[in-house]
Amino acid sequence: MRRSTPEFLRIYEAECRRKRVFVEEVEELERRLNRIAVTVRLITGDPQFRALLASEGLAAMPKTLALRFSDSPPAHTSSQPASAEANPTSAGEICPEVLALLRDCTGPAGLFALLRLVHPVRQMEIARLMIARGPVSLNYVKMLVALTPLSLLVKDIQPLHELSSFSENRRVEMEQELAKLSGAFLGALDRRGPASLELVAACRYFDRLMNNSSVVRYLARNFPGRFEEFHSLSLPVFN
């Protein structure tokens, strides 16, 4: 890795910010979905309102929304590939799962040489982070390898020289921060797709409620303090 320490820090800090922003966006998406679920639970707790919904043909709501406000949110299927530990790979080799994951990716020269410096389980994590980040950046991969825990580096491989100017405490701090953010990022990545679809369905249903004059009159009369909030929840998901 032929880059100066300031450049290494720039890449590190930029990627940490990027991951924080992504995680926060997914968490905000989930918070909005939960607010809709709480609101639907509140208004459908009124028997007269449920009867009104039935009479207006609005009683049927998206299954995922019904599950969520009944405190049984739908399970999100993880997109994480099979663990690289399932098929042991010798140190210094690329595990088959990573090769399959990168089959359709165009990677820069030197990518696989870098992946061979880490154990298969770390290869898989780096591959997932690379693909999610897109496009594949060699400098990004170099940074991930440089901040790989010693236990996940191939034997006799030493940390890259850009870390030599950092104290041991600082290196460990950066390594732990990146590991924490990477885990949160990959978890958010798994949740984003299903949660986005669920939120679109929930917002559309709520929009139907707020476009029905009978429903609007009932809510305005019986929930005047929350009527503005009801309107905000029916706004489009993405601007």
Rank of each mutant, 00 (worst) to 15 (best):
E7Q: 11
E7H: 13
F8V: 03
R10Q: 11
R10A: 14
I11L: 09
E13Y: 02
A14F: 00
C16Y: 05
R17P: 00
R17V: 00
R17A: 02
E25R: 15
E25K: 15
V26F: 09
R31D: 12
N34C: 10
R35A: 09
A37Q: 08
V38P: 03
T39W: 02
I43A: 01
D46G: 00
F49V: 01
R50P: 01
L52Y: 06
L52F: 01
S55C: 02
E56W: 03
G57Q: 05
L58A: 06
M61S: 06
P62D: 06
K63I: 06
K63M: 11
T64S: 13
L65N: 00
A66H: 14
F69D: 01
S70Y: 04
D71E: 13
S72Q: 13
T77Q: 14
Q80E: 13
A82W: 12
S83K: 05
S83Y: 03
A86M: 12
T89L: 01
A91V: 08
I94L: 03
I94S: 05
L101Y: 12
R103L: 10
D104A: 07
D104Q: 08
C105M: 10
T106W: 05
P108E: 04
P108S: 03
G110S: 04
F112W: 12
L115P: 04
L117V: 06
L117G: 10
V118R: 07
R122C: 05
E125P: 00
M130R: 07
A132E: 08
R133A: 10
S137I: 01
V141S: 07
M143E: 05
P149I: 04
L152Y: 05
L153K: 14
L153H: 10
D156N: 15
L160P: 09
L163C: 05
S167I: 02
E168P: 04
N169H: 11
N169M: 15
N169S: 14
V172W: 10
M174V: 00
Q176W: 02
Q176C: 08
E177Q: 09
E177G: 03
A179S: 10
L181H: 02
A184C: 07
A184H: 08
L186Y: 00
D190Q: 04
D190G: 08
R192C: 03
G193E: 10
G193M: 09
P194Y: 03
A195I: 03
S196V: 04
E198S: 09
V200N: 10
C203P: 04
M210N: 05
M210Y: 08
M210F: 10
S213H: 15
S213W: 13
S214T: 09
V216H: 05
N222I: 03
G225F: 14
R226A: 15
F227Q: 00
E228R: 13
E228Q: 14
E229C: 06
S232G: 06
P236F: 05
P236D: 07
V237L: 13
